[in-house]
Design a protein around this nucleic acid. Structure first.
Lengths: 299, 299
DNA sequence: TACTTACATGAATTTTTGTTATGTGAAAAT
DNA sequence: ATTTTCACATAACAAAAATTCATGTAAGTA
């Protein structure tokens, strides 16, 4: 059921996301004429043109761009609103939009998969969505309501959001077999040597680290796989989660530079914004995550 | 124009506020049958009954109560959303919902009327709403978006809201001509005498005062007119804004107990919540208020 | 020039929504 | 107890709105 139905806004958003009327036909399940009329009606109502279209291609106008973002936001909250009312019926319904950082599928102790299993085992009508993004990005999306919960190593915690510790992740510094350090005996590796090689840095969750972080980084990535590829190139040193680097180490491609001052741990938090929507689906999932969590230190 | 139209929710909310279908006919401009059908459709969609009705009277169910509050909230934000999109057209539209405390019409320096004149002088399509409520109540309504701006002597300021000083208000203690103190020479009036008479206290904006506040109040009011009536009864002393009490003083009904330690000043703030909706109408009005404000101390 | 793509438009049609008239059941009046 | 009235429900019909189908148009492409 659609309580806060709005055909005009829905049409507009879909059209934008399909990049034109013709493709949106199938997404919306109506004919192109209907779309044409709906957009015309929307524009008549608003009093301005939201997009240029025609053979020359589809393009939002300046105002259309703003309208599109607002419309997308309101449609999301409308869906949540529907779910809130439907949940009074004692069903578990609506969207559950979860955000996580990348490279967590192999993170031991992270109860995401277990929690999902537990959650989905209940009879429900929930529409799941799982987005991968950086912690900064996830924070934004939590605030806007684009995701209901997020799991990431949040360093800067906002007062508006509530955070629960979920697990820890061990990090180490790695080089690849193409790197000069790969075959150097462990005792010859010290801070001085290390700082003479360029470091690939992550744009978030900076290690609360040593001299390493101070050396100006030439490359910045926001994605673990990207980090791995740059390390693999042999030109950079880079920090990775242990569990994530393991497969490269096993294949003999990466070497862990394992000295005492090259160990970091980042703490993963489950973040959510209560004020946004208090929905049963969201509450249950948070509960599931917490009940599966393993907060012990990583080995 | 109605972008986020929803007939079902609108019908529901109106019906609740009219206390039944029959009255809601006129409010909604449709027949009673249509309402009956809409409510049936709403209930079918939700899967639960929202209200009991019939000859025995109209009553929301428990779930209906929750649904009603949520629906009312969402309809308000839907109106604001509409206004946001319409304002891209460069018109000033939508609701402007203003909250103030009572007894401010005679407050010198408060630029409300002047600001309203300035605001309304512009060509606009704004739907004004002016609600009178206590500061506590106004804070709640600001947060919920029920009002866009509020003017009151806010003592406890929330981090979520932004406050701008607007003007000051002088307060004095009064008694009426029915009161034993009315004819007592000024020099005989001291704290001791005063504390022997019952005080009518205000439930908000407590004077940062002296011994007076400490004496247990027997009566508490949240409204200046109520305060005036109780003072007029001759049983109570009470604090009032000078400007407000003036007409009683002029008529010889009230006497101002004017000693040095019986003078208070409260500061009025304009409060708003930016995050809620940033709308041109709201911004303009805030600007108008500020440009008219007179922040000097009251005589 | 002819063709294709991407959308607009008008007439016809389907779907939705609303009205009128009438029915039902419970409380109030007689 | 019977009738009346009130508050809403329902069915049949009417009006309005939304959608489709067929076709038109304009800009880019072959």
């Amino acid at each position: 059921m659609k309580l806060l139905r709005n055909t005009l806004l829905e049409t507009f958003v879909t059209v934008v996301e399909c990049g034109g009327f013709s493709d949106a036909q199938f997404a919306l399940g109506i004919t192109q004429s209907a779309i044409s009329i709906r957009i015309r009606d929307l524009e008549t109502g608003l009093g301005y043109r939201v997009c240029e279209r025609g053979r020359g291609g589809f393009r939002l106008t300046e105002r259309g761009e703003i309208a599109y973002r607002k419309a997308r936001d309101i449609l999301l909250s409308a869906r949540d609103f529907d779910a809130e009312l439907l949940e009074l019926r004692n069903a578990i319904t609506g969207d559950l939009r979860i955000g996580v950082v990348d490279a967590v599928s192999s993170l031991p102790g992270l109860p995401l998969v277990a929690a999902l299993q537990k959650f989905l085992a209940r009879p429900n009508e929930v529409q799941l969505e799982l987005v991968i993004a950086s912690p900064t990005d996830l924070t934004q999306r939590l605030i806007s309501g684009e995701v209901h919960v997020a799991i990431a190593p949040f360093r800067h915690q906002l007062p508006d959001l509530s955070y629960t510790e979920v697990c820890k992740e061990a990090h180490r510094l790695y080089c690849s077999d193409q790197h000069p350090l790969f075959n150097l005996p462990a005792e010859e590796i010290d801070a001085g040597i290390l700082s003479s090689y360029p470091l690939c840095q992550r744009s978030y969750d900076m290690m609360a680290s040593t001299d390493l972080a101070k050396s100006k980084a030439q490359v910045v990535v926001a994605n673990m796989e990207a980090m791995a590829m740059l390390i693999e190139s042999g030109h950079y040193l880079g920090a990775l989660p242990k569990h994530f680097a393991q497969s490269w180490v096993d294949k003999g491609i990466f070497r862990e530079l394992n000295s005492d001052d090259l160990r970091w741990t980042s703490t993963f938090y489950l973040a959510s914004r209560q004020s946004k929507a208090h929905r049963r689906a969201v509450e249950l999932f948070i509960q599931d995550i917490c009940s599966c969590a393993d907060k012990s230190d990583p080995k």
